[in-house]
Design a protein around this nucleic acid. Sequence first.
DNA 1: TCATTACATTTGTATATACAAATATTGTTT
DNA 2: AAACAATATTTGTATATACAAATGTAATGA
Lengths: 150, 150
Amino acid sequence: MKVEDILKTKATLSIKKKVLINLQLASAKTSSEMMSSLKSFDISAQQFNVLRILRGQEKKPANLNTIQERMVNKMSNTTRLIDKLIDKKLVERCICEENRRKIEVTITKEGLELLKKIDPEIKKLEENSTKNLSEIELKELNTLLEKLRS
Amino acid sequence: MKVEDILKTKATLSIKKKVLINLQLASAKTSSEMMSSLKSFDISAQQFNVLRILRGQEKKPANLNTIQERMVNKMSNTTRLIDKLIDKKLVERCICEENRRKIEVTITKEGLELLKKIDPEIKKLEENSTKNLSEIELKELNTLLEKLRS
DNA sequence: TCATTACATTTGTATATACAAATATTGTTT
DNA sequence: AAACAATATTTGTATATACAAATGTAATGA
């Protein structure tokens, strides 16, 4: 469906405007698919994102700053996000002894187990979200998106 | 900057995953540019979106359902969004006499004047957000994004 | 050492969003 | 007409997000 039909506008939109709107629409679609898929695991997309970052650390703890930097959708309040994950016993927090300003966050065994359960679902989701595009188209799209945000 | 460098991951990501992440990154970048530009007009992106929809109606009122359908980022609570715009005297609300369940929303003179002030800023923003892509690349990107969400 | 600055996180506040339940109005069926 | 379903909006609740101010800790210079 074309942007004009969604917005029900008679005006012809510039290609720049169309790209920016389509970007929002595509992003909203894929992220809401992600959200509804994660919902059955009782976890938000942001929380899932943090867990994956921590898994990538391989036992090494990460402090809040690092987590925030690496998040795809930088949210402005990592403290409260981590609080939620602690409530769910998916991560642990302790004060860094070398620099008591810093907080060290590590993923728990339960956190790793949850990720293991989620992984195949996410894989399915990724396949499904991109099913209309060929390998070549995906590469082309990736290049253009990188160019757009550079 | 490549996705891998942002996420600081050693693992090689599949092209599907990369596309989906880049989509989020690009969308977050452009929408946050939009937000910060609108901020000086004391209006949110969603509120701006509603005002544009109402302008497109050309005096004809729109009801809440219609507005919600046409919004780029469907938000789940149009009532409260309209409330904010009423507080700012940018739109007016009245009950539809033919069907008293419906609410008719129209943009005020102040609303139209604000849009007129914002328009050139948005134009500049659109130019800037897409400056790294040629006309051909924009068309290609638009096609791929439409395909992705179809 | 004391003041200043920088750094890292937390807290407060306002708004945004998702979702479910409640309310009000209209249309339909018996 | 009364009961019921359908439609349109509102309200409540929980969480998410943006941003500024506050707090606590460490490093630096006078």
